[in-house]
Computed example of a mutant assay.
Amino acid sequence: MKKYKNLGKNSSVIAFEEGEDYINIQFENGWIYKYSAKSAGMFKVDMLKMFANRGMGLNEYITHFAYKDYERKYRGIIEGPVWRK
């Protein structure tokens, strides 16, 4: 997973991992949410990827537009390190 830059300094997102049609987002509480084209639609997945790579606005976008659109949620490591805030 790639560490989220959190340029706004107020996000609970700490890391993310992108795939072709999905993004996994790890929050500071340890939960990882998978948003996929199947669950959220490709437009939302692309927006989540954009905000994740920008390092700002991801948590806000999720809260307002994709809160319940995740495919699954789980705890654990996908690949790479577990990031801490």
Rank of each mutant, 00 (worst) to 15 (best):
V45I: 05
G57R: 08
M42S: 07
F65H: 15
M50Y: 12
M47S: 14
F65L: 09
H64F: 10
F43H: 14
R54L: 13
F43D: 05
T63E: 14
F43C: 06
K44T: 04
M42C: 07
L48C: 07
G41S: 06
A66T: 05
S39G: 08
A40I: 03
G55S: 03
N59W: 13
A52K: 06
G57A: 12
G55Y: 02
N59D: 12
V45P: 01
L58G: 09
A52G: 09
K44F: 09
A52T: 05
M50V: 11
Y61D: 00
K49H: 14
V45L: 01
N59M: 10
L58S: 15
N53K: 06
F65C: 15
A37M: 06
L58K: 01
N53Y: 12
Y61N: 01
H64M: 11
N53L: 02
S39T: 11
S39K: 03
T63C: 10
G57F: 12
T63W: 08
D46K: 11
N53F: 06
K38Y: 15
M50D: 14
M47H: 08
K38S: 07
N59I: 15
M56P: 12
K68A: 11
N53T: 02
M50L: 11
A40W: 13
M56E: 06
Y61L: 00
K44S: 12
K49M: 13
M42E: 09
K44M: 08
D69I: 02
D46A: 07
G57L: 14
V45N: 01
A52C: 15
K49P: 13
F51N: 00
A37W: 04
Y67P: 05
K49N: 13
D46F: 10
K44H: 14
D46T: 07
I62L: 04
F51H: 02
E60W: 05
Y67A: 03
G55A: 02
D69A: 01
K38N: 13
F65Q: 15
F51G: 02
M56S: 13
K38G: 06
G55F: 02
D46L: 11
A66I: 11
L48K: 00
N53P: 03
K68M: 11
N53H: 09
K68Y: 08
A66K: 06
M50T: 05
M50P: 08
A52P: 08
Y67D: 07
A52R: 07
M50N: 12
G41L: 00
K68Q: 11
K68T: 10
E60Q: 12
A40D: 03
T63D: 05
Y61V: 00
M47Q: 09
